[in-house]
Every structure is written in C-alpha cells, then in structure tokens.
Amino acid sequence: METKLRALPRRNVRSVPKVNSSWKKVLHNYELYLFLLPTLIYFIVFHYVPMYGVLIAFQDYMPTLGVSGSPWVGFEHFERFFNSFQFWTLLENTLELSVLQLLFGFPLPVIIALLLNQLRNQRYKKFVQTVIYAPHFISVVVLVGMVYVFFSPNGLINNFLMIFGAEPVHFMSQAGWFKPLYISSGLWQETGWAAIIYLAALAGVSPEVHEAAIMDGANKWQRILHVDIPAILPTAMILLVLSVGNLMNIGFEKAYLMQTPLNVSAGEIIPTYVYKVGLQGAQYSFAAAVGLFNAVINFILLWAVNRAAKKLSGSGLW
C-alpha cells in the first residue's frame, strides 16, 4: 500500500520532462520531418484518400456531386454483383488462376534453389543463375506478345508439334488454353527470380552442419532433406503467407492482355472486370463495389493465413 502511494507522485514527476523532451526531439529534428513530408503527403493523397473514396461503393456516385454529396444506396451494388450471371464465373476464374499459380509457383523456386545449391562448379552455377533471372525483367506486354507469336497457328510451338504430324492448335482462341498458358508463362518468367531468396537462406547454412552429416554417411539427397529443407522452412513460411495473402490480387495486366474475344470466358477475372465496367463503362460505383469485395476477401485471407502460420511455426508477418 505504502509503495503504491509513493510510486504515484514519482511517476507524475517523471512524465512531465518526458513529454517535454519528446517535443524537443521533434523540434530538434524538424528537418527529418521535412524529409518525410512529401512521402507522407503522397501516401495520404494516393492511398488514404482513395480508401475514403471507396465509400462510393455504397453510393450512386455523381462526378459533379463528389463523394460527400452523392446519394447513399447501401449494399445495392454488392447485391447486383452477387446476383449477376457473371459473379460465379468471375470468382471461379479468379480463384482457379490464383490457386494454380500458388500450387506451381510456390514449390518450384524452392526445388530449383535446392538443386542450384548442390552445384559444386561455382562458375556454372553463376551462369545458370544469370540465365534464369533474365526473364524477370521482361515487360508484361512483351511477355504476352511472345505468347501470342509463339502460340499462333504458325508459330514456334505449332511448327514443333507439326514435326510429329499434329494438327495446328489455335491456342489463343480456345478458352481451355488460357489458364495453362497464363500459368506456364508466369513460371517461365518468375521462377528463377523467386529462387534468389531461398539461395540466400541456403548460403547461411553453416558448412559444419553439412560436414557432420557427411561424417555420419549422409548422401546429398539425405542432406537436402534433413539439413537444407529445415534451413529454408521459415523463409518459405513467410513467403507462403505473403502469396496466399495476395491470392486475389492476381496480375490484372497479364490477364487483360491475354484475353481475346474467344478465350475471355476463361480469362475474365475480377480485376479485369472492374476495369471494363468501371473505366470503360463509367459505372464508377458498381466497379468500386466489386473492387472492394475483392480487397476485403484478400485482407481476410491474409489475416487468416498469418494467424495459422504463427500458430503452426511461430513465424508470421506481424
């Protein structure tokens, strides 16, 4: 009882100069706040104002009235979207593409990093790395352009198939080919680059651990299983959380560019739909509602996966 009483006034005395000193720090470092100011303004104007602007999803937005003046309509746009005939197709396409991408795009870089790490010849390793990183820097437009020329009826792929007497396939005008082409071109472009992080984690494994394993008679395959894989597991976990958290943010640009009138039934995903309805069709409120639906699902996924990862392995994003 006595100690409590004594502690109170003391804390009060100490807190006064603390506030003072933190203001002093702010004033003393005013230049740092000036450094930060343009970036702060940027984030407020181009990220937080649009977050406020998403309110138009619950309004009938009129450009002349603005966000504050437009009439409220509640969940009308959401209901219209859920009841529209495209809803299930869009959701299915979006989820199917992103799950497929995760299914192949997640393990492949791990495997390649593990194998590259086993190469003893450092110069050859460097060469392979330089080659497989390169496609990462190709623009989406050029990548999709390459898909179009290679998979055209008289393109490289069909010329190759015809050697074996196959009939030319019209890849870009068949809905069934959209997803395989989307996924495989993505793997071609990003797998090598995605392996970098795992290679760095593997480089951090102490050689002594491997030496001890060799002494115990472990061969390379056993060392990969029992030394290398446990070493990259935490990194892999964080990356898995990140990619599941971005599941619904599947690349708009590539899907949009790969769409042709004949394959669009398989290629229409929520983001491309938002663009077409919102900007080309000028239905701002409806498109904002569809976009918000996407963003909310995404955020819930991220939150759930992060929680699960933290419970399972103790490493999460926050």
Binding site: V49, P50, Y52, G53, V274, G278, L279, G291, A295, N298
Partner: peptide
C-alpha cells in the same frame, strides 16, 4: 501507415477518380 497500403487499397476506381 505506409506498410498498411501494401495489404489494403481503395482500388482502381477511387484511385482513378483522385
């Protein structure tokens, strides 16, 4: 404040309007 924008955004339409 900055990192939060990596995980949630107003989306295409509100940004376009700004």
């Amino acid at each position: 404040l900055f990192v939060f924008t990596m995980f949630f955004s107003g989306g295409l339409i509100p940004t376009y309007l700004v």
